[in-house]
Computed example of a mutant assay.
Amino acid sequence: MTTSPPAASGAALVLFSGGQDSGTCLAWALDRYDRVETIGFFYGQRHAVELECRAPLRAAIAGLRPWRATLGADTMLDISAALATLGATAMTAEIEIETTEAGLPNTFVPGRNLLFLTYAAALAYRRGIGTLVGGMCETDYSGYPDCRNTTMQAMQLALSLGLDRAVTVETPLMYRDKAATWELAAELGGAALVEALRTGSHSCYRGERATLHDWGYGCGTCPACELRAAGWQRWRAARADFVDGA
């Protein structure tokens, strides 16, 4: 009978999409853990261009500090078929982005983060990793219920019980607005990390990467772009002393 290795105290698995938040979380994890692996998901997202950003952004972040030796394997999972059978959203189909009767943007993919964490925990179990790191946030966000801290706490308990092994779900951005997320990046990796995230990460729900704004690529009008742009502007206004490229 084969068994999985015991969870390593110095290891973490980062849910890494190629976006600003998950990129910041990757740097955060690399700064704290002895071994860091990443996992990404294709779920039929219309902004699948984010997946093209993953490898170069991952490499750029790892090269900014003595992190290259810390960064381990990357795993990509295709769960698009399963989610497609449950219905389309503005995140997974060419549907106009709007607010639903429930008060949520129709970019909400029901259960997405719950599935992500379940798959990530299963991989972490096999890899002997006890900590999952995700960019979920309930400060500057679109109101998704599966981004709330109470949801993360419940998932941490459920995963620990279901795997009969302690699972820790770390969400370093949970109470940071987007301005504070840019500031965290500056603290972790200076101007080089900020620039890597600004130009190398992707957040735009429409998958637009033709126009580079001061805050990064995007359409500029979807909820993700608006949050990212507003956070950048607040952060730059507060950090007049920050020198680009320093």
Results as ranks from 00 to 15, higher is better:
203 S>A: 09
189 G>F: 06
55 A>D: 13
105 P>S: 01
194 V>M: 13
185 A>C: 06
41 F>M: 09
198 R>D: 02
73 A>L: 14
57 L>F: 11
136 M>P: 00
164 D>S: 15
112 R>N: 00
63 G>I: 11
123 L>C: 09
153 Q>R: 15
88 A>F: 15
62 A>Q: 14
15 L>I: 06
182 W>T: 04
154 A>L: 10
160 S>I: 02
198 R>Y: 08
178 K>A: 03
21 D>E: 14
190 G>C: 11
191 A>F: 08
123 L>E: 06
64 L>F: 05
69 A>R: 14
163 L>H: 10
180 A>T: 03
246 A>C: 15
168 T>M: 10
232 W>K: 09
148 R>A: 11
66 P>M: 00
216 G>R: 07
149 N>Y: 13
37 E>G: 13
149 N>G: 15
230 A>E: 09
169 V>Y: 05
21 D>M: 07
26 L>S: 09
78 D>Y: 07
53 C>P: 06
161 L>T: 02
108 F>R: 03
78 D>Q: 13
109 V>F: 03
241 D>P: 09
46 R>I: 07
182 W>H: 05
165 R>I: 00
168 T>H: 05
82 A>T: 10
19 G>S: 07
144 Y>H: 06
74 D>Y: 13
154 A>G: 06
89 T>K: 08
243 V>H: 12
56 P>R: 01
192 A>D: 11
190 G>E: 07
231 G>H: 05
91 M>I: 10
224 A>H: 05
17 S>H: 09
53 C>F: 11
221 T>M: 12
176 R>H: 13
44 G>A: 07
187 E>P: 11
133 V>H: 04
169 V>L: 12
235 W>Y: 11
199 T>M: 14
194 V>N: 01
131 T>N: 09
220 G>M: 04
115 L>H: 11
129 I>W: 11
64 L>H: 07
211 T>C: 10
211 T>Y: 13
90 A>L: 12
10 G>H: 10
1 M>L: 14
184 L>Y: 08
23 G>D: 03
185 A>D: 02
165 R>Q: 11
121 A>Y: 04
155 M>K: 00
153 Q>N: 15
176 R>V: 00
